[in-house]
Write a protein that binds this DNA or RNA. Sequence first.
DNA 1: AATTTTTGTAAATATCCGCTTACAAAAATA
DNA 2: TATTTTTGTAAGCGGATATTTACAAAAATT
Lengths: 195, 195
Amino acid sequence: MERKKTEIRREEIKKAVLEIIATEGVSKLSTRNLAKKVGLSEGAIFRHFQSKRDILLGIMEDVKIDLQNTLREISIELIPAEERFHKFLCAHINYLYKHQGITILLFSEAAHMNDFLIKEQLNGILKEQKLLISKIIRDGKSEGAFNKNLDEEMVATLYSGIPLSFNVETVLNKNKFNVKKFCANMYNLLSSVLK
Amino acid sequence: MERKKTEIRREEIKKAVLEIIATEGVSKLSTRNLAKKVGLSEGAIFRHFQSKRDILLGIMEDVKIDLQNTLREISIELIPAEERFHKFLCAHINYLYKHQGITILLFSEAAHMNDFLIKEQLNGILKEQKLLISKIIRDGKSEGAFNKNLDEEMVATLYSGIPLSFNVETVLNKNKFNVKKFCANMYNLLSSVLK
DNA sequence: AATTTTTGTAAATATCCGCTTACAAAAATA
DNA sequence: TATTTTTGTAAGCGGATATTTACAAAAATT
């Protein structure tokens, strides 16, 4: 029997979680089915994670490291605010597209398990995204590129709906979505809000 | 023991579902807890609905009748497209605020049970909302109030994110949300997209 | 008043869930 | 090579779930 180190198995398990959600739906995300997907016994899953909840938290940590770092970096790049906004949006959408299942997992499980830490984590992620967008808007204002009367908070709220409806559409329509087009079109629309 | 007609019990049960979700979370939505909330035995629940899934479908039917009819009517009112857009948005947000738990239920359960009919119903609801918005945009264009170059489909997608992020915020922050302000501010923002 | 239908209960059902335990063997370390 | 640590399995645990069954009594109908 082939054996692998914990760190590798942990990655395999987290990957399998997203795969199951994207292809079979959240209801099939049991430790039994997860074990089958990874090719291990159920007990082995609990060798690498203390609990199912811990797997979820691990995935949230990944989002924090991968997506949030990317977005944070974009938000302080030395390019015009307009360009930054565009890049930010595309990076965001791209990540969600590549990691299908992650939004459903986060929201569905955050709603399902009535778990304080998980809700807090999700809330933290969303709040930071809104803060970063607000910052870009503020920069755009002082650059003279954006309308000075804009309510940054509101723009950020409007923005935050985009990834959500993007996800709903991809899930419900299993769309062969043209991600680039979606992102470009949405940016065009938004740029008229900003100016 | 007081006895009531099926139609009344059905309403009580559906109401209890939303109450549980809004106050205790989706995880507490078991037939046991539901029966307790209504003040019946578990068996009685199944006297009035064939299955738990059927309760969900019943609630979706209510949304179709209450929310969708309201929105449909607003979309054809004989007032300027701008006003219609505003009214549409506010009615939409208001309904979701008054029926807290409904969005979580619809999305969370649609994601959870990988159920074709439920997904189709939800998809139908969202698609119609987008169609109605598209129609209002088109009317606004021919009235000369909206920018003729607008991509109606994209505006509708952008729009559809608003109720979603509204819900996420109310759920995650248990906000003492000022619904009217939210709606007015969001409309102001959007009207700059439209013109 | 007698009968049928509807609405209720209590208890049991099979199934699935996350997780633990007892044990084996591979891999790393000494 | 001998020992310890890590990674695996098989089986089973208690508990929760949606749903069913057998039966009682209220309400409606005759």
